[in-house]
C-alpha cells in the first residue's frame, strides 16, 4: 500500500512544514499573540540563543491565560509557555508524527535537525495536507454539498 509505505518510511521533512515563528523568552504574551495573529499561525516558538527550542505558546495557552487573568498578557512569555519537548527529528519517519498527533493529542510538532535546532513546525494540518497530496484526483477536485435530491424541480 503506497500511503502506508510512505508514512512508515518517508522522513518527517517530507511533510508540509510551517516556518519557525519565534519570539525571545523576554517577549510578552501580548507580543506573541500579535505575532501569531499577523502570521495566521496557532503557535509561536520560544528559542534560546543557539536556536534550540525552550518552549511553545499556542492558542490553548492563550485561552487559559485569558480565563485566569487577562492582565497576564503583559507577563513575559516564559511564565506561560509549555516547556515540554514536543519535537521530532527531521529524519524520523512520518509515522512518528502521526502517532504523537493521535495518541498524545499534540496539535503541533517541532521538527528539529541533528543538533536540535528547529527547522520547521508541522501538526494536524500538515498531516492532513500530506494525506490530501496522496489523493489529488479524489480529494483536491471536489464538488461541494451534493444533495441526494433537488430542492426544486429542474427545467422550465
Amino acid at each position: 500500500m503506497g500511503l502506508r509505505n510512505d508514512i512508515t518510511n518517508a522522513p518527517v521533512s517530507d511533510l508540509p512544514l510551517r516556518e519557525v515563528m519565534s519570539v525571545p523568552p523576554t517577549a510578552t504574551c501580548r507580543q506573541a499573540v500579535a505575532t501569531m495573529r499577523d502570521k495566521r499561525l496557532g503557535y509561536v516558538l520560544i528559542l534560546d540563543d543557539a536556536g534550540r527550542i525552550s518552549g511553545m505558546f499556542t492558542e490553548r495557552h492563550l485561552i487559559k491565560l485569558l480565563l485566569a487573568d487577562p492582565k497576564q498578557l503583559d507577563d513575559p512569555i516564559d511564565k506561560h509557555m509549555s516547556r515540554s519537548d514536543k519535537s521530532v527529528r527531521q529524519d524520523a519517519p512520518i509515522a512518528t508524527v502521526i502517532e504523537k498527533l493521535q495518541s498524545l493529542e499534540w496539535r503541533f510538532v517541532c521538527v528539529v535537525d541533528e543538533q536540535g535546532k528547529a527547522v520547521g513546525v508541522t501538526g494536524q494540518r500538515g498531516a492532513m495536507e500530506y494525506l490530501a497530496d496522496h489523493f489529488p484526483r479524489q480529494v483536491k477536485v471536489q464538488k461541494m454539498k451534493s444533495k441526494l435530491f433537488m430542492d426544486q424541480r429542474e427545467g422550465a
Binding site: M128, E129, L131, A132, D133, F135, Q138, V139, K140, V141, Q142, K143, M144, K145, S146
Partner: peptide
C-alpha cells in the same frame, strides 16, 4: 458527502 469532500475543504 464523501470523506474526500470534507478533506478537500480542510486541505
Amino acid at each position: 458527502d464523501s470523506p474526500a469532500q470534507a478533506m478537500n475543504l480542510m486541505a
